[in-house]
Structure formats: C-alpha cells, structure tokens
Design a protein around this nucleic acid. Structure first.
Lengths: 146, 146
DNA sequence: CTTTATAATTAAGCGATCTTAATTATTAAA
DNA sequence: TTTAATAATTAAGATCGCTTAATTATAAAG
C-alpha cells in the first residue's frame, strides 16, 4: 500500500478518471490504424528513449528479439520508424521514430481528447488558470527528472 | 487545429508527457497478464459503463459481435467479468466487471506510476497542495459531465 | 399463430504475431 | 589467427484473434 498522502491519492484518482476516459478511444484508434499492441509500445518507447537496439526493445515489450525484428519490419514498411546500422558496433541497429511515426502517436493521443472540451466548458476562467498553472508546474518539474 | 487556448495547449502537453511515461509500462504489464488490446478495452469500458451488451461492446471496440463473444469467454474464464442474462430481454447478456476484474485494472494503472514518486520528490509542500487542489477541481467537474 | 427481426453463440478458416532454432555478420577474447 | 560471444535476421511452425456464415433462442410484428 502506498502512503495515504493526499497528493498521491488525488493523483491516483485523477489517473483513473483520465485512463477510463481516454483508453477506449485510444485503443479504438490504434486498431483502426492497424497498429498492434507491440507496435504502439514501440512508438511510445522510441519517442522518449531517443534510440535503442532491437534486443533491448524486445525485452521492454516482453517478446523475443526475433519477434521484435519482425514487427520492426512492418513499422519500417509503414514509414513510422527508421532502422540503421550503429557505426560504433555494426552488429547493432539504431531505431528512431520518423516524423510520420511521431505524428501517428500525436494523432492517437488527440483521438482521446474530446471529453476535455466538455470539461473545459464547465470551468470558469479562473479555474482554468489554476489548472493550467498547476500543469505547467508539473511539466517543468517532470522535465527535470530524466 | 484546436484553438490556441493556453488551457488546451498545456493540457495537451501534459497528456503527451503522461502517456509517454505511462504507456510503455502499461503495455508491458498487460502483455504479461495475458490480456489483449480488446480485453483491456473491455475492462476499461465496463468500468465506466456499468453494464452493456455484447454487440454494443463489439462496436465500441471495432470488432464483430462474434469476436466480442469469443473474447468475453476468455474474460469470464479468467474471472474478470460476469456475463448474465438480462431479465428484461433474455436475448441480451449483461456484462459487469467482477471485483477481480476491477483489481486487474487497478494493478495495470499502478504499474505505471513509479515516476510519480520521482515527480513528487521534486515538489515542495505548497506545490503539492496547489496540484492536488487543481486535480480535485477537475475530478469534481468531470464527474458532473456524464 | 406464424413470420420476421434481433442478440448471442458456434464453427471453420485466415492472417497476424508469437516462439524456437538455425543463420549471418560483427566484435571480443584466447 | 582462431575461437567464442553477441546482435540481428530468417525460416518453420504454433497459437491467437479476427472474419464470415450458420445456428439457437427470444422478442416483436403481421
């Protein structure tokens, strides 16, 4: 059990609400784009990891490197990632998200956000300011921790 | 293009950060639990929809009712949902999340939250209060819109 | 009462996505 | 330089999750 800190319990409650509102639509969108769970995991992973090898990626996804390699074939074919040789160690491949891959991620995240407009409509200008300011604070801090 | 409202742009930026931090771990956890994308979508859907029929669920997931029915077999077998006859119309099945199903969802969401501790450590008590209060405001408002 | 419509399931088949095992290419070690 | 280790890929086969089509059960309409 985590501590009964009001920060954590509120955060947890908010995440629950956020996920419940967002995930259905996100999954729906992913399926329609023809992206599997592994592919989505890969796009997210490459986005905040800059670059990584095939085996490492597979481990993170919980599949074999063979499976990762095959899935990467499809992502390359879709133009969502770029796979190139690592000049430091030519056995290794460097994987990076392409602009198109980045946009595919963005689109998926935008797909879930209809309900935020609804939320916004119930808020006064001061309330929006308060929330915006709190989020900016979190954004600033979270950028420092990695 | 959505309006260049600072509320929306900040919210969007925050979602991006949140998703990138959370989704990899969430997907990893889902795979290890043996849950498919449809299963996860179903658990989320049933959690905030109370109850719904098989065909409706399939439509929401973007699959046929046959596929939904087969997937529900597995979820029932895993004890994550309960499937029972609707007394009002005995052709229809009522689907509800079991306690175990609810806990599986909770677990998945908890799996992603390690980084929140890190974020918390960078915040002063007043900063936490500010964020907690803004989130409570959103929670209160969002509960009114559905 | 008979016919039609609807909800869910079952069955058969197909393609996607895994797995293991073998292969190729490169690097590190003996 | 030969041998061993590592990274990625390829190939073959198994399994999963989907589709369509047929089936069963119930409800609504004629």
């Amino acid at each position: 059990m985590p501590p009964a800190d009001p920060f954590f319990s509120t955060f947890h409650e908010w995440i629950e609400i956020f996920m419940h509102r967002s995930m259905c639509r996100f999954i729906h969108h992913a399926r329609q784009s023809g992206l599997s769970m592994s592919m989505i995991g890969t796009l997210f992973h490459l986005h905040h990891k800059e670059s990584m090898g095939v085996t490492d990626l597979g481990e993170h996804l919980g599949v074999t490197s063979a499976a990762a390699s095959q899935m990467l074939d499809r992502l390359v074919q879709l133009g969502l990632i770029q796979r190139s040789e690592d000049p430091e160690d030519r056995r290794v491949k460097i994987l990076v998200l392409t602009e198109k891959g980045f946009q595919a991620l963005e689109e998926g995240m935008r797909a879930q956000q209809g309900w935020i407009k609804e939320l916004s409509d119930t808020l006064s200008a001061e309330e929006k300011d308060k929330i915006t300011s709190a989020m900016n604070l979190m954004i600033e801090k979270v950028n420092q921790i990695s």
